[in-house]
Amino acid sequence: MDWSADILGTDFQSCGIDAAGSDGVVRQATLIRHRTARDQGTDAPPTPTERNGAVLFLHGWSDYFFNAELATFWTGLGYDFYALDMHNHGRSLQSGTPGGYVANLADYDAEINRALEVIHHDRAAPPAVTMTLMGHSTGGLVAALWAARHPGKVDFLVLDSPWLEMHGSSLVRRAAHAMVAPIAKVRPETVLRLPERGFYFRSISSTAEGEWLLDEKYRPPLAFPVRAGWLSAVFAGHSQVARGLGLDIPVLVLTSSASANGMAWQESMRRSDAVLDVGVIALRAMALGRTVTLERIDGGLHDVFLSAPDVRQDAYSRLARWVHGYMQATMPAHRREGDT
């Protein structure tokens, strides 16, 4: 692959990947890797004292990968870190295409599969090391559904505030889906006129009241327009989660301990999830599989790893505890047997 310097600077490189979906459409995505300064100038994979495996991160909707601190956390534990800017998002945006749009969440499968192939080749890894898929928000939903459709392809799943259900309950989702479905079937790219709120962006962006430097062409303050086909695809994903995914790998779900909703700014939005209903997300998390750990982060934002420094330190500590307890203490049986 042709890796080049990435927008995140010295320790990051990226490459474009093309993947043909089951519908025959070739879509473009961008794979990002974290390589420290000592690994620059060589195609060889990094060699920390213990190379425990690799992590692939999937961003949320209307978002892209920018959290260098998250990459440093994983590489510090001996994992090779990669992130994927999925098609119609971030580094993969193309003129003339609707930002953030997908008509079926399974359309992401081909680029995730291709990214894993590139990672395996890039690392030249032995079969004894593990593969972890991590996703945030809609990326968490995509990751969980992908893992259910591709058993045995990854060993662990880490979800950061995954969008597993609508606010309130499945009844709300069913009612909304019934209204959206006819439009999605006939005119899937129709923009739905929904209330626009920029509260979460306000809490994280350094151009507002947050600490994170965001590229607004990749992560717009009011997000991309909501289109009928995309929303219908998300509802379909929620329905699958509600029926149970039956995952047989360990799953970690991290969320804020509180939500803040409403059409007006509230100071509580600085220390809560201003996007999702964390109560219903916690409930739906139990439908993911047999081994699910739920961590509730006091003061956490929608992306708990973008929270205030003391809060995200707590989130990282809880993630590290899970990594040591599950990922590093338990090697999957099929890996021990030498299968790939």
Rank of each mutant, 00 (worst) to 15 (best):
I249L: 15
G299C: 05
A264R: 12
G300D: 07
D248E: 14
A285M: 04
D303I: 01
H302F: 02
S256D: 04
L294W: 01
L231G: 02
L252F: 08
W230A: 06
R243F: 03
L301N: 09
P221I: 12
D314L: 12
G244D: 12
P221K: 15
V251Q: 08
R284L: 07
L306T: 02
W265V: 06
W265E: 12
L254T: 13
M263Q: 13
D248W: 01
A282M: 07
K217Q: 07
E216G: 03
L213K: 14
G299T: 04
G244S: 10
S259C: 02
V253S: 06
W265H: 06
A228K: 11
A274C: 13
A242L: 11
G210M: 13
G237W: 07
S259P: 12
F305V: 09
T293S: 15
L247F: 02
H238R: 02
D298G: 03
I281L: 14
A242R: 05
L214Q: 06
L276Q: 15
Q266Y: 02
Q266S: 15
A242H: 08
S317V: 00
S239H: 10
T255N: 13
G289N: 10
G244K: 11
L222D: 02
Q313D: 11
Y218N: 06
L283Q: 15
R271I: 10
L306N: 09
D273M: 07
G244Y: 04
A233R: 00
V275W: 04
R296G: 00
A315M: 09
